[in-house]
Every structure is written in C-alpha cells, then in structure tokens.
C-alpha cells in the first residue's frame, strides 16, 4: 500500500478526517448504566460487567426511595473481541465509542483483559 493522503476510500483509513478509526473501543464510564445490553449482544462474549445497586441520596424530601446501578467492573477481553462494533451500535446510552488507537500487543491473553481504567481512553 502506498502512503497517500489519509481519507475515506482505498489507501486511507479516514480516521484523520472523520475521527472514526476502528482501532479499539472506548468506554464513557459516566454514561454507562450497567444495563448489560452490550454484554448480551456481543457475539464473541468478550464483555464482562459487574455492578451493584445503591440508594439514590439526593432525592427531594418526601419522595419514594429509589436505587441506581453502580458500575464496579467493565472488562473487554481483546483476545476474544472481533471488532464487529455491535456493542457500540447497541449501547442505548452511547457509553461505548470507536477509538482510532489500537490495543497494544501483549505477552499473554490475561494482559488483553482491559478494565475501566484502560478503556476510558488514551
């Protein structure tokens, strides 16, 4: 492949112009509601989510008690992921996004299990 101008079409990834490089997947943690949709839609079963519920504290006086989900662990196993992007498409809260940068190679498959910190973006 020749080094041409980066752009959509043959020879370029289009990442520079559109910001849509499909190198890896980023987690926007504050948008995630732990709804499990991505983990259930993933065809390669590479997303693992742990969460728990906590009571909502800042409620107006007199309102009914409510709970919300709190994300404890969000893990993508890059040794299983096939970069299909179904999780990015299916997320109802846009908490997953394509990231142009690729995941680094690793000496063992365990190192390819990335948690919230690694997935938050570079």
């Amino acid at each position: 492949m020749t080094a041409g101008p980066a752009g959509p079409g043959p020879g370029g990834t289009g990442a520079a112009e559109t910001g849509a490089g499909h190198g890896s997947i980023r987690l926007v943690e504050e948008r995630c509601t732990s709804c499990m949709v991505c983990a259930r839609e993933c065809p390669s079963w590479c997303i693992t989510i742990d969460s728990h519920t906590e009571p909502v504290t800042d409620l107006p006086a007199g309102s009914r008690e409510r709970t919300q989900n709190v994300l404890d662990r969000f893990e993508i196993d890059w040794s299983l992921c096939m970069y299909c992007g179904i999780c990015v498409d299916e997320c109802p809260f846009d908490a997953l996004a394509w990231e142009p940068g690729h995941t680094d190679a690793a000496v063992s498959a365990v190192v390819l299990q990335h948690g919230i910190e690694e997935l938050r973006g570079r």
Partner: peptide, 24 residues
C-alpha cells in the same frame, strides 16, 4: 460449556441475586 457474561442482570451481585434468568 462456557459461562455467558450476559447472564447477570443489571445491578445483580452474589449478595442480591436476581430471579430473572437470561439465556444466550
């Protein structure tokens, strides 16, 4: 033979298991 990561419900922990069950 592999446990499915989507089997858990949102907010479900070992301490508060959910009665709802999803199959892959």
């Amino acid at each position: 033979a592999t446990p499915w990561p989507g089997a858990k419900e949102p907010g479900e922990t070992a301490a508060s298991p959910s009665r709802r069950r999803m199959a892959p």
